[in-house]
Amino acid sequence: MRERQIERRLHSHPSQDGDGVRISRIHDFGGGLDPFLMLDELGAERPEDIGGGFPPHPHRGIQTLTYVLRGGLTHSDHLGHSSSIGAGEAQWMHTGRGIVHSEMPLTGGDGLHAFQLWLNLAAADKLSAAAYRNVAAAEMPRIRVPAGELIALGGDWRLHGEQVTGPLDALAGDAAVAHLRLSGGAVTLDQAAPTLLVHVFAGRLQVGDQVLGRGELARLGSGTRLRLAADADSEALLLAGTPHGEPIAHYGPFVMNTREEIEQTLREYRDGVLTQEA
C-alpha cells in the first residue's frame, strides 16, 4: 500500500453569499480540485450572521450537496420540491440544464452550522434534466472504531478494513463524501481515488506526515492509503472523486465549459427559458 501525502493546502476565507449570509469559503475554479469546485461553511450563532438566507436564484452545470450539523435549512425549487433538513441530514441537487431554488435557514436556539459543496458536472451532463434528493441521517452508514467514526454521505469508503457505501450514488465525477470524527487516536483510510481532499473544521488532524488546522483543506498526492490522527476531538470532511479534465468557465451560479456557453446561459436566464427542456 502506498501512503498518500499532502501536496497542496488551502485555507478558507470569510465571505458572504445569498442575502447577507456570512460564510467561510474554499474554492478553485481552475480545476485544481477537480471534480470539486467550492466548499462553503455556514456558521451562524447570531441572527445577523444568517441575513436573509438564500432567496430564489438559478444554477446550471453543477451539483450541490448541503449537509447540516446544527440547525436546519428548508429548500424549495421550480420543480415543486419543498422540504427541510435538520442536524445530520443532507440534500443533493443536480442542477443540470437549469434549476431555480431557495435555501432558507431554520432559525432557532441552536443557530446554524452547515456545509455546501459544489461538484462540477461533466460536459455531457451539463444540459441534463434537473433532480433533487433529501437524505436522512438514518440512511447514512457509519464505521465506528475506537478512535471515532466515519459517516458516509455518498460513495465508497473503507476504514480499518470495513467498507460502507453512502446513499448518494449519483455524485458527479464518481465522487464520495464522508464526515470523519476523531476523539483522539489514529485511523487508516483506504482510498485510491485520483482526487482526495481532507477539510478540517474542528480541532486539528495529522494528515500523512503534516498537521492541518481548523479551516484548512488539503489535496493528497497519489497513493492508496492515508493515515489520519488526532490528539483531541477533531472533525473533517473527506472528499474523493475522479477529475473530468475538462475546461471550466464560471460566472456566479453557472459553471460551463466555455465562455460562449456562459453567455448563452445568461441569455436564456434573461429570456426566462433557462429551466426549459431543449
Rank of each mutant, 00 (worst) to 15 (best):
G61K: 01
L196P: 01
A193S: 09
G173Y: 05
R4M: 13
L73S: 06
Y132R: 06
F115L: 02
D209E: 14
H179R: 11
A44D: 05
G223R: 03
V21R: 01
F36S: 07
L150S: 04
R227K: 11
L39H: 05
L69R: 10
G88T: 04
W92Y: 13
V187A: 08
G272P: 14
V187C: 08
D17V: 02
H101N: 02
H94W: 00
D156Q: 07
I143P: 07
L212S: 08
I262V: 12
Q91K: 06
L237A: 15
A175Q: 12
R227G: 15
L65E: 04
Q163G: 12
F115C: 00
A172D: 07
H244K: 11
V145F: 10
G32T: 08
F254M: 09
R259H: 12
E216R: 08
F54K: 06
W92D: 04
H244P: 09
V177S: 15
S183M: 09
R267C: 06
E103V: 01
E162I: 11
I143F: 09
L33G: 04
T275C: 06
L180H: 10
A152P: 14
R60Q: 13
D174Q: 14
V135A: 08
R227P: 00
T195F: 09
A176S: 15
D174S: 12
P141W: 00
G20M: 07
A44T: 06
V68D: 02
